[in-house]
Write a protein that binds this DNA or RNA. Structure first.
Lengths: 208, 208, 208, 208
DNA sequence: GATGAATGAGCATTCATTCAT
DNA sequence: AATGAATGAATGCTCATTCAT
């Protein structure tokens, strides 16, 4: 019954979209399953047919988003050869993705913590994953002698924390300004933080 | 009736302490006013006499904590003359304070977001305040020519974001390791990020 | 605050009465906590203040009823000296109590099983208790040589089972006839079952 | 299409068997139609094709069981000539059947009440039927002068009630002991209850 | 000031039943 | 005949907040 399957899958996705909207509008706790049912033009029973409970539905959203970020980041990284440029690419892509998906960013950076204890471990894992990604390329850079030996694990955390803060500030500011404009300065700060020579940071000498 | 006033104030504080424990144990949403009433050996009515509602009680906690952080930071800053050392002092003190008050850190960095929309603006303000503190000293450093001109507002955000991430990771890790050991490396990264000369970062040449 | 206590206790009892009515009207499962709240002129929250959940409320009812039966039976038994007469008294009193409290009987004999697994053990205990009561007096009778040695535990069960069946049939019959008229014949059957001589059963020789 | 008919009938039976298992495992209310569908390797739609609703499905089970009991009892009764022995046979067979089909007994004696109001009349009818069966043979016995004239309708009820209690106690006891061992003592009690001479009850004089 | 009983809106979840395919 | 996705009414329970005493 491919037709039925398609329809079911379509509804599945419609629910995910609706949930994204509702959760990021109202926050995890204030979002009622009823709201999501209405928004996805489904019945409450239909919702529960596709997702066993509210928590799982929210987790599905986070996982979906992690997948998106990871895929984009990996694609961008693959296009670069130089390890520093790889790390830069990861930073840039995540910033861009958040910039163009404010709703998702809201979910990922704010609501995920707000959703309660159960999600903390999951979030910690996401943060670790991003940190590890940066770290691996910084390690390459160290190996190649581009930057001095250092605590690259911490550097990964610092990069993600900085990104996180910039995006969160943007999320909580009303009205939101252009997030992407922050990228060059952020890039400069973070590159400098790991000891990338100034010459490499400002190729044409355009110190801000 | 100064005695009664004392008693009232004493109870006020007992409630705050109890609330701190309960909120950081259970999280904002899962903490019931009942729990706090019991923990503070008061009645529910008593609670509501001192605080008009749950939100306000939680806000009082955040404000108290902000006050503590601010006081400590300002004291530490006042002891330094050099602007870079002032900025460093702020960073160090906040890290130390969180390290020695895990419960407060939990509340401030995790639960505050979890508490819902109503707190977002407040949190944004806290973040801005810390960022501005760092920024002001970095601006002095720029003025003195110690570091190059740059987007010091962003730098302030980056410093706080980095700190935030490091502490949060520590909060969510089981079992928690020693947070303060991270300080030297974090300091180095952040000083370097704003262009402090390596010679100043590692005075005796002890590159890690 | 004895006044408040009184009021609270009064409400407690009003809830129990309302619950008795609703449960025996609709049965355990079809009785909604809402129904009971309305019937007891309370709010749902008020209900839950007095009883932590539906099950506990129902159990309180059963316990209350067990207490009533036990008290009446013991009082009646205490008035008799002869062990056979004591056993008879228990039988008679329980029959009478059920006859005059149809609602309670419904709850005790029908709904208690219908309420589900969780109550089975409790019901089994009630049955055992009644059986043991009969048994103890039959044992006395055996000891005194009034009736032959026999499996008095089983006899206790038989007596209660017989009573149970007669009452249940009456409960389920529409319209209900006079239950107490059944007593003499039931008494005769049960006395004969344990070997009480016919002469003692029909003192004046009034065989039915 | 006899083959299809067979298949349908086969499925019909598979559903009944599955329902028996599920209902007696979980009880009427906690048994979900979904559970039964899975257990019978059918779909929910399939279930509803064979039985219009949950109630009807459960009734079908009860009817099936009543039929089994009736058939066995009648067969056993037919083998006896003496009316007392006929009544005894009915008693013995029902006890044996319950003893060897614990699941069915559970359904018949416990869950049937738990299933709610709608089943009460049906159950009453079953009880009446068994009572009437006993009664008819006791009436014969009275007519033949084997036992004294008495309220045989009540006696039928007493016999069934006693049996019911013994079996139910066994059902609710953990772990279940051997039910059939109770038969001789139960028989003696019940025969004596209707006035069967002791000599007939213990042919070889083996008073327990 | 303090108490704690009472309120009631709110919500996640279940499940018998339906029906398009 | 059979499937299983969808429906939606029903319900037990929670908890911030109020208020008579």
């Amino acid at each position: 019954m491919p037709i039925e399957q398609d329809r079911s899958q379509f509804r599945h996705e419609r629910i995910l979209e609706a949930a994204t909207r509702i959760f990021s509008q109202k926050g995890y706790h204030d979002a009622a399953m009823d709201d999501i049912a209405v928004e996805s033009r489904t019945s409450k029973g239909g919702l529960y047919f596709h997702f066993p409970n509210k928590q799982t539905l929210f987790l599905a959203l986070l996982d979906q988003m992690m997948g998106l970020l990871r895929a984009r980041a990996e694609a961008a990284i693959a296009e670069e050869i130089d390890p520093i440029r790889k790390a830069e690419a990861a930073l840039r892509v995540v910033l861009q993705t958040f910039a163009s998906h404010r709703t998702l960013a809201q979910l990922f950076l704010v609501e995920a913590l707000a959703a309660g204890r159960e999600f903390h471990e999951r979030m910690a894992a996401s943060h670790r994953a991003f940190g590890a990604l940066i770290q691996s390329h910084l390690d390459d850079a160290v190996r190649q002698g581009v930057i001095p030996p250092q605590d690259t694990a911490l550097a990964g955390q610092v990069w993600f924390g900085a990104l996180n803060e910039v995006v969160t500030t943007w999320l909580l500011s009303e009205p939101p300004g252009p997030l992407e404009e922050q990228y060059p300065a952020l890039r400069a700060l973070l590159l400098r933080s790991v000891g990338v020579p100034t010459a490499r940071i400002f190729p044409a000498g355009e110190e801000s």
